[in-house]
Structure formats: C-alpha cells, structure tokens
Design a protein around this nucleic acid. Structure first.
Lengths: 354, 354
DNA sequence: TTGTAAGCGTTATCAG
DNA sequence: CTGATAACGCTTACAA
C-alpha cells in the first residue's frame, strides 16, 4: 500500500479507501488505485486488517471428526456458504474428546474468528467451556449434536419426522406389520426416530407392538441378527424401518439369505443416506439428513447473529425436515395418495478420480 | 497483556517473554506471569503475533471438494498432523475449477498462511497461478493430483504398484485369466494401475491379452457392462482387477446375477477402499490409498520446507505404497508364498451417530 | 474529497 | 535479566 501511495503521490488513507470502496473517494482516483494495485499484484494483509478492525473474516468449525458421510458433507456445506459470504473457515476436530474440544475453542478464540460453529463431541456433557466464548460475546451456533435444555442457537434435523415419513412410506407400500431396528435410546436421535415410527403407526390405527422392535447397536451385523430374530417369530414383519443404513443393510442381507424377496416379501427403509445405499442390490430406501443444508443453515444463522451484533439476540433453533429417498428396497409399486413422496430417484454413484 | 504488566509492575516486554518462554527470563517471574495469565484467562492474539512476526501458524489447504471417501480422509490426516505441530488449517475448495483455485490461493496469501497444501482441480493444466505463491517464497506441497514434469514437492500414491500387487494377489489365488476393468487412460492414475497389472502378468509369464481389458468410465454400471462382455466371450476370466471399487462392484454383481460364485468362479479386486467395500456380500478386496498417511506425509514435507526456510530446498516427491486389503471377493484360500499379503482383515463398519 | 496521526496486540532491537 | 520503543499493515476519527 505504501508503494502505491508513493507512486500515485497520495496518502495511505486514500489508498485504503479506494481499495475498500469507501464512499468518499473519487471514481477517477479509485480506478487509478485499483489499476496500479493490479499491476503490483497487491495482496491485502487480512491479519493486519482484522487486527485493526477487531474482527476477522474467519469462521471456526469444531466437529468430532472429518470422516464418514455426515460431517464432511456438512463441512462442505459450511465452507461453501461461508465463502459465498466472504468468510474462510478454520477446521478443528475434537476427536470425541471434551478436553480437545476445549482446546479447540481456545485455538479459535486466539485466531480471532468472527464466529464459531460446533457439533459437540460425544463426551461433552456440559457447556462450561463455552462460557469463555459466550463471555466474549462471540457468536456461537451448534449443529446436529447439541445439548438439550439450553437456550442456544442451533440447527438440527427432525429425526422424529424422519421416523414418521419412513414408516408412513412403508405403510403406503402395503406393509402392515412394520418392525423397527432401533438404536441406543439414550441418544436423542434414536429415541426420536422411534417416536416418529410410533406416530405413524398410531395414525394408521396400528398397535405399538414391542415384539416388533429390536434394539441394536446400529451395526450391520446387529441388523442382521435383529432380522433373524424377527423372522424366527410366529408372525414375521412385512416391513422394516431401520434407524440407520448399516443395520438396515444387515437386515436386508439376512432376509435375502433366508430366501425372502426384498421388497416383495419384506420392504426395508434405512436412515442417513449413506453412500453405499445406492450401490446395493436392491438399492436402499433411506432418509436424507440434508447435510449440505445443515451446513448452510448453520452459517446463515451464524451470520445473522454476527450481524445483529451487540443487540440482544434471542437464541433460535432451526429444524430441518429430513427427506425420504425412495429406492428399490421398499418400492413395491409407485406411491399414490400417501402425500408428497418422490418417485424412485435415478442416482448414479459417481466414482471420484482419486 | 497490558493488564498483567500493570498488575505485576513489570513491562510488557517481560510479560511477552514469560509467555513465549524466552530464555532471558527468571523462572520466578515466569511462574508469576503464567499464573496470573491463567487467572485472567489470557488468550494470546495470534493475529497480532503473526502480523509482527510475519508468519502465522496457519496452513492452507486447497482441494477440489470435501466429499466422498478420499479427500475428507486426507484432510483429516492433514488436520491431525498439523495440529500436532501447532498449526491450524484453513480449508478451501476449488470445485474442480481453475479460476476458483486461483482465488483460493489469493485468499490463502491474504490470510498470511505459513504454507499451502494443494490437490489440483481437474481443470488445472498449468502452474501459472502458483507463480505468485512461489515468488513469495511460500512453501508449497502438492498431494495426489499433481502436474507431471514440474519439479515440485509432492506426495502421491504409487498406482502402478497398486495394480501390481492387486494382480499378483489374484494370481496367488489361482487365477490364470485375469481381466482388467480399466479407467480413462488420459488420467495417469488409471494408466499406472493398468501398467501395474501388465507388470504382474509379465512376471508370471502370462501374455498381455487385450481382449481381457475393458475400458470403462469407472462407474458401477460400466463395470457391470464390462463384466457382461467378458463373460460372453469364449474364454471368460477367472479373475478381475477393477481400477476402482465402483466398477469392481458392478462386475461382481453382474457375475452373481449370471449365477457365478465370487470368488470361487471368478475372484475380484477393486481399488480405493471405498466405504461400501466392507458391507457388500462378499466384501470386496481392494487397494487402500493411505489417505491419512498421505495427509500426514504432506504436512511433514511442508513443515520440512517451512523449516529449511530460505535455503535452497530441492523439491522432493514422496511416493506412498498402496496397501492390499484382502477381503471376501478374492479369498479362495489363505495366501501362501506370494509375499507379504495380509490375511483377511476383520473390519467392522462403524455407523456414526449422526 | 483528501490527509494526519493514532492505534489494534504482539515481538525484535537495542540499551541498560 | 529487564525495559523503552519502534514496528508489523491496515483502518478510522478528526481535521483540512
């Protein structure tokens, strides 16, 4: 900047104003400055700018890890939305460890981020370490994994709705005895998915039948075992709603192993829209968690808080509607009259060149 | 810091020295400062520090995107290694677009990162936009997707070796007519995988038989079609090396559809160790690309360059050895005498709670 | 519309 | 071992 000022015979201030599009700057001068800055390949030093302004253009992300399908997709959504708004993101992993999560927060505070997006580690049971963040008035938004009961900004998926539309879909496909492969009930997401399942049954006038529920650890093998158990019963199910894709897959494989046809003899739905659901035979009907949208919504909410800076902002919760993705494992015939359900999507698994 | 100085009646300099563990500081004073800084919950301002020192503790990453299996895993490796060395990472996506890649670089330069890690976008065909980086003397390391012929620091996978060990494994399982589902040959990775396949055949005294090679676009469906073609021939293969997991899966499904047993009638290997390879029936033998290690190696290399700052550093290429992961689709009997090949691994697909 | 000067929080230099 | 001071590159009152 100093070089430009010297060469144009103006002050640093003028240069600064021209570059940052300040209102009180002549268009002629602005053009001159911009042109010269191009020529000199000027790169603004955002550190200096942020230091002076007391606000950087960085957003901090804390996630348990960056693997599997869910978090990378959310991060992808966050990065994309953040960049669009002129922000960069700095990523931290807690590795499911509160202590590391605390250190992550310190790091982000030190980096003077403009706001923080967090999905809690599994070992986080209180908000103590977020007090420091809050006391600095640093905007904070949680996504997916949150602690209940606290008034915080958050973006979450409506898991209950997910269980509901999934079960409803099975009903619409003619299933009348629908089993549920449930997850650990101390985790909210699984409790809610189960509740949605109950809701749909009740709505259809069907009884809650505990013998149709198998509690699993969500693994493929556990799903297969659950299925074995269900099929061994006197009155086996004609539909299965799995709380996750892995256990749904295990169930499907077990059913086929026993000579049953999927979906004709037993229809199956999973949850999460894992990558593999599109490569199995048949492909698996599942619930999409709107990972990208979650990231985008989280950024949107965060920017809102950042912009309404200072003024008392009432914490807000954004609840995303899950999306039913109908595929082969549940498609007995095209859906009719069961509400807005998409026809089987044609999806191609896109192999990356890596 | 000013508060601490006032309260302790010493100068800012002393505080700074105590906090940054400078040698010329009394242990007594150091303790006092550290203690008080804890009490006041002092957070260093890394922006100010970086501004003054002219070097931040940030590493920049530019990847085409953060999805699928490969890039998230590499990023995970990078983040982990970087954090261990006291660095944070800023992530940018190029979305396979050179123009965006250029902007990403500008962003990172502006953020005053200490070094940059890049995996090139598919539309990048020259290094022009990296000149700016190089001219600033900013350390630069490429990984996975690089431009050949240039002398740069890079970490890549030995794809040829991958094709070689995969084919060799099939040979060791008794296969004698091994087909190859090849990828687009203008991409180096696929050309190299095919070359490794040839190498293994030649070593075993088997001829290169073009009728055993089908060129695919790597998609599942394309693999199925390729398999159909191969099986329709007079002399069908008893083993298939697919250049990717998706096409290998398609081939496997087609073989089973035609009543063949996998691996007994035809053994199959894929490439990339995609997540789904562990949930199929049978599970798919594949080549692991060492994603984590690639990230770690890239960081290691970058830090080396950063540390040997200024002095002429000769570009170095790190070549990672791919790892054969033996699973059901190729295991006819336990391997013996074919070199160091792992026994079938017991892996569990770990469903995330999300 | 432009310029002057102070200052963001830290560290390097030089002098005690 | 400690302190005063300048400086990193940029922004912003305030003054002209």
């Amino acid at each position: 900047m100093a070089d430009l000022a010297r060469e144009l015979g103006v002050s640093l201030t003028t240069i600064s104003r021209a570059l940052s599009d300040h209102h009180s700057i002549g268009p002629a001068m602005k053009q001159k400055v911009l042109k010269l800055s191009k020529k000199y390949n000027y790169q603004p030093n955002r550190l200096a700018s942020a230091l002076r302004k007391g606000k950087s253009q960085l957003l901090g992300i804390v996630v348990p890890y960056i693997e599997g399908r869910f978090f990378p997709s959310v991060v992808h959504g966050i990065e994309t939305a953040a960049r669009k708004a002129g922000y960069n993101v700095i990523i931290c992993q807690s590795n499911e460890d509160v202590a590391q999560e605390r250190r992550n927060l310190d790091t982000l505070l030190s980096a003077q981020v403009a706001g923080i997006l967090v999905s809690l580690s599994r070992t986080t049971h209180d908000f103590q370490h977020f007090e420091k963040v809050r006391s600095r008035g640093l905007p904070l938004v949680f996504f997916d994994r949150i602690l209940e009961g606290d008034k915080v900004n958050a973006v979450v998926l409506d898991d209950q709705e997910g269980g509901y539309i999934s079960t409803r879909h099975l009903l619409s496909q003619g299933c009348r005895r629908i089993a549920h492969l449930a997850g650990p009930q101390h985790l909210n997401i699984y409790k809610n998915r189960r509740q949605g399942y109950f809701d749909a049954l009740r709505e259809a006038g069907l009884p809650e039948d505990e013998s149709l529920i198998v509690y699993t650890d969500m693994a493929q093998q556990s799903g297969a075992e659950g299925m074995r158990q269900l099929l061994a019963a006197a009155n086996p199910p004609d539909g299965v709603f799995g709380a996750g894709d892995y256990c749904a897959l295990g169930a499907m494989q077990e059913a086929r192993r026993q000579g049953l046809r999927v979906p004709e003899d037993v229809a199956i739905c999973g949850f999460s829209n894992e990558t593999f659901t599109v490569v199995t035979e048949p492909t698996i009907t599942t619930i999409d968690q709107r990972c990208e949208e979650m990231g985008q919504a989280a950024v949107r909410l965060l920017l809102e808080v950042i912009e309404t800076n200072g003024s008392a902002y009432t914490p807000r919760q954004v609840v995303l509607r899950p999306e039913l993705v109908v595929r082969g494992s549940s498609t007995r015939f095209l859906d009719a009259g069961a509400g807005p359900v998409a026809a089987p999507t044609v999806e191609s698994a896109d192999p990356a060149d890596a």
